[in-house]
Design a protein around this nucleic acid. Structure first.
Length: 429
DNA sequence: GAGTTTGAAACT
DNA sequence: CAGTTTCAAACTC
């Protein structure tokens, strides 16, 4: 259908209006936009020029990514917050992937292995294999994760690249308008036992839940077809699955010992998940760090946001506990950037910059958006209207949880970020 | 590697 | 809102 085309057209029109055409050759210096708005493109470009310096990115200024609108510098604190809040934890959190991705992605030959995350392989980032969606739909894991497709992807007619940033952003916006939580992390981790997302009946080891719940009928929630299982979390009352046997926690509340039911490779998965979980738990301590980091290092934008945020935060606009903010820092918008830096250049030098910046990353840190920039002024997160009809419970306190989750990555981030805090909030001009 | 199965996403 | 179709990943052979 014409949809895509329409979208493109739309985008085109939007471009004219809001988006800044970007010159590939532009210098980093240009990147610095007066005020806050760092454009994604800029970032991308900039990242290119200065891949190493995350700080620079920061200094360049906050950019608000999300919707096109965001480009204009948010004047109001609210806007800022909103953008900040969009956090995204990463939707998919595959237990297995996370960390290493970057390196591996490119590394070993990056044979586009489809995504089979095999046990041994740390799966790098998400690599898609889209053929018809142009990587502009949620079918595309990369797109859904808020990251640009990178070389390892085997997608065809891919529009999810920095070059088509406008398209990507507009499409995202569109999708978000339809479903604000579309880019939100699918798995919401709640660190607090009692506070689980809606259901207490189930307790997952990780105390996390899939935001919308699954709808599995044949897989018994024992295969990766099941998003809950895939995310390493148990099914919850939000799930409509039939015959749930989720090893991480069944819908009915019973938790199977992980070792018990495992399908073939579940074991591994379980183990991994378990590891992650444990790691995360451990990480809880560092959660704060993570939060901070989450935004920061990974993406320039995020950085900027974070920085920006500081000022605002003090202003009390921030209702959400900082944790939220932290999380939010990586909003859907931010995702893309995050990607890039996700693997901090520090760690990964630029592997392939063809697409450059953004893509490189893969790591999963992709943020999740708690909220679309557009809604939730309060961030309170009550997204009552979940498009899906399944209720999406807003992560109340995701704070500790989400961030903490990915241990591997976290490490990277932590290391890479050290300087952040010290950055002076760019008050920019 | 090709084909099938599965369930989310998108569409009507 | 429910039903159907499309899509790409997960899985099997």
């Amino acid at each position: 259908m014409a949809t895509q085309e329409q979208i493109e057209e739309k985008i085109a029109s939007e471009d004219n209006k809001q988006l800044v055409p970007f010159n590939p050759s532009s210098d980093s210096s240009k990147i610095i936009v007066p005020g806050i708005g760092l454009h994604l493109n800029s970032l991308a470009i900039s990242s290119n020029n200065r891949r190493n310096s995350v700080n620079e990115a920061l200094s360049s200024g906050p950019s608000l990514p999300s919707s096109d609108d965001s480009f204009h510098s948010p004047t109001t604190a609210q806007e800022f917050l909103e953008s900040l809040t969009l956090a995204s934890m990463e939707r998919g959190l595959d237990p297995t992937e996370n960390d290493v991705a970057l390196a591996e992605d490119f590394g070993p030959g990056s044979p586009k292995k489809k995504r089979r995350k095999v046990e041994g392989e740390p799966e790098a980032c998400k690599r898609c294999n889209c053929k018809k969606s142009k990587c502009l739909k949620l079918y595309c894991e990369c797109f859904a994760a808020g990251v640009y497709c990178i070389e390892p992807c085997s997608c065809q007619d891919c529009f999810n690249k920095p070059i088509h940033e406008d398209t990507v952003l507009s499409t995202r916006k569109q999708i978000e308008s339809r479903n604000p939580l579309a880019f939100a992390p699918k798995v919401i981790r709640t660190s607090e036992p009692g506070h689980e997302i809606g259901d207490e009946s189930t307790k997952t080891p990780a105390s996390a839940r899939h935001k919308r719940g699954c709808n599995c009928k044949k897989s018994s929630c024992l295969k990766k077809y099941c998003e809950c299982y895939q995310g390493g979390v148990g099914c919850s009352i939000n799930c409509r699955c039939e015959g749930c046997k989720n090893a991480f926690g069944r819908k009915d509340g019973s938790v199977l010992p992980e070792t018990e039911t495992e399908p073939e490779d579940d074991t591994e998965a379980n183990e991994k998940n378990a590891l992650e979980i444990s790691a995360k738990q451990n990480d809880n301590q560092t959660i704060e760090e993570q939060n901070m980091n989450s935004g920061l290092p990974a993406t320039p934008l995020q950085f900027s946001r974070t920085l920006v945020q500081i000022p605002y935060s003090s202003s009390a606009i921030i209702k959400p506990p900082r944790s939220l903010l932290g999380i939010g820092s990586s909003s859907s918008n931010g995702l893309y950037q995050t990607h890039n830096f996700g693997k901090p250049s520090i760690f990964k030098t630029q592997s392939k910059l063809e697409n450059r910046p953004f893509q490189g990353i893969c790591d999963d840190d992709i943020p999740e958006i708690l909220r679309g920039s557009s809604f939730s002024p309060g961030m309170g997160i009550k997204v009552s209207s979940s498009p899906n009809s399944k209720r999406v419970s807003p992560p109340h306190h995701t704070s500790s949880t989400s961030p903490g989750r990915r241990s591997g990555r976290k490490k990277l981030i932590l290391q890479s970020i050290p300087s952040f805090p010290s950055l002076t909030p760019p008050q920019m001009k």
